[in-house]
Design a binder for these strands. Sequence first.
DNA 1: GTATGTACGTAGCTTACGTCA
DNA 2: CGTGACGTAAGCTACGTACAT
Length: 322
Amino acid sequence: MELALSLGDPSKPFSLLGNTPKLSRSKDLGFCMGIGDGFKSQHKIDAFEAQSKGGDSDEKRVHSDPPLHLHLLPSSQTQLRIPCLTLKYGDGRGLDVNQLPPAVAAAEEDDEESEEGAAISSPNSTVSSFRMDFGIRNGKNKGKRDLEVERVSDDDDENGSTRKKLRLSKEQSAFLEESFKEHNTLNPKQKLALAKQLNLRPRQVEVWFQNRRARTKLKQTEVDCEYLKRSCETLREENKRLQKELQDLRVLKTCQPFCMQSPATTLTMCPSCERLATKGSAAIAATGYPPFFSFANTCDPKTSPSPPSNFFKSLDVTSEKT
DNA sequence: GTATGTACGTAGCTTACGTCA
DNA sequence: CGTGACGTAAGCTACGTACAT
């Protein structure tokens, strides 16, 4: 797994070694490492939908970018086949709390339609005709968790205003996860479609995506933190080594009168190993002979190609007189 | 062209609840 | 069975952006 820092300008997209930010789709990765530019992609989707809708308030948001058609769901046009969910609605068992009571669901639908238009809920809509029975489970899959959920469902019926913690089913979570991999933000239409497909309230879908983004960011922060720790450790070691080299050079400078007569000792850096070498006293001390060109035994001359003449960064360490 | 108000979406923080060891 | 840690759904607030006036 590659690591990349995204601690700079938060408005800029997460970049992985220069690659375009892209949410990871790998199945084995528990979270998405890339932080996409949610606003931009969202606007692209808006632009597309405004164009396809043919003129309402959204149309004014159209960007100059070409419309980007994102497929919200893996199979929004087809029935999702999940074996444990294929029981018919209304067998009287295991009614999921996350499935709205018919009256409430109808009210929710009306609210959403009044807010966002009836595009989704039209009788001919493939989305509205598609109902996944996520709330229905057979006896085998109905466990303690479902019983718990049913209890809350009863409360929900008697008072919809109280705050309830409704655990999403595995299937619902998995489906939301798949959608999140496609894109980590939702526009109202997508939210509605997802809510309908999963028999959730649009607000639940919205909250789920909010929390999912937060979790992704948290994970990324942890990864960044680890990376910074390692970088810090590496730099500390490097600094320690360089300090020691500098100290050695200073000792040599004071101990060898020969150095006083020579011009400034020049430190050079090996292009392959990036260790310091000298064209002067240090090399003399190391070899006993004034070197013409040396990396102070830090490099294998066979494997170290000759650097261009202007490559070396020079450090004058003897220019100041003590 | 600029200032102001409004609507909306998001991030961040927090709370409350469910699950598990 | 009680308890604490952890994960997560949901509430709340601040902020940024787009748009209308």
